[in-house]
């Protein structure tokens, strides 16, 4: 039985700077893993490699045993065709820091776009699915609104519904509360907590330490392109093993 997500020796550079210097990590069905670390530690880049928003030069990423983005032919590493990569991207759902809702579409149409174009659902079926998820994030009555007519928190909840409606095996969250006003953070975190309780497999990059502490089964601390420390959140936060993590925890407010 393969891992749901397995990252092996992941290497990624931007020009001369090596951002990921060999990351190994595995997740099982139903895992909720938070990735923490200072900015520039490579945590967002790792997330973006998982759905090929970034190409990577070394290592492998596999979801359910399926190698993402590249294939090996006669010991030659080859980038897959765009069409295949697009199909593989649908295995994961991604929620962005800046929401990235399509501004010219209603909340409902934002969700149905992928269902119709990628999942080839009929419109009625897509609408029903989208409405079910809008209801789950508490925004059913706003389905006809455009992103510009919603608050930041509401936009982010629609973005979560858009990603999860595609029925992905793994949800990726990239600092989804960083762009929000403080009073809007909780409504979004609450939605994520509910999803965690329902057994959704999730990988979250976050700097909400209390949230990471409460919601995750496992925490990964990224440091300078490598995994600095990982384990149970209670142990890590209360008794960090490395100097670096201790420093990082001290500098980030635990509120």
């Amino acid at each position: 039985m393969p891992h749901l997500l397995e990252i092996r020796d992941l290497h990624k550079s931007f020009g001369q700077t090596e951002v990921l210097k060999g990351v190994d990590c595995a997740m099982e069905q139903g895992d909720v893993v938070c990735v923490i670390g200072s900015s520039g530690s490579g945590k967002t880049t790792m997330l973006r490699c998982i759905n090929m928003l970034e190409d990577f030069e070394g290592g492998t990423i596999a979801i359910d045993g399926q190698q993402i983005g590249y294939e090996t032919q006669r010991s030659q590493r080859k980038r897959r065709r765009e069409r295949e990569i697009a199909r593989q991207r649908a295995l994961t759902g991604m929620v962005f820091q800046q929401f990235n809702l399509f501004p010219h579409m209603t909340a409902l149409a934002n969700i149905t776009l992928g269902l119709i174009k990628v999942k080839k659902m009929r419109r009625e079926e897509a609408n029903a699915t989208a409405e079910r998820w809008l209801d789950r994030v508490g925004l059913l009555e706003r389905k006809g609104r455009f992103p510009g007519q919603l608050s930041g928190g509401q936009q982010q909840r629609v973005a979560i519904a858009r990603a999860i409606a595609m029925n992905p095996k793994l949800m990726l969250f990239d600092e989804v509360t960083s762009a929000l006003d403080p009073e809007l953070v909780n409504e979004v975190l609450q939605v994520i907590k509910d999803l965690a309780r329902d057994g959704m497999t999730m990988l979250l990059v976050t700097h909400e330490m209390r949230f990471a502490y409460e919601v995750s089964k496992r925490v990964i601390f990224m440091n300078e392109g490598r995994i600095g420390e990982e384990g149970d959140p209670k142990q890590m936060f209360l008794k960090p093993k490395t100097e670096r993590l201790a420093e990082f925890l001290k500098s980030s407010s635990f509120h």
Binding site: N51, M52, L53, A86, R87, R89, A90, T92, G93, M94, F96, N100, L101, F102, L113, G114, K117, V118, A159, R162, A163, M166
Partner: peptide, 8 residues
Amino acid sequence: EAGLAIGL
């Protein structure tokens, strides 16, 4: 990127 992420 959001479009790519949903597989378009």
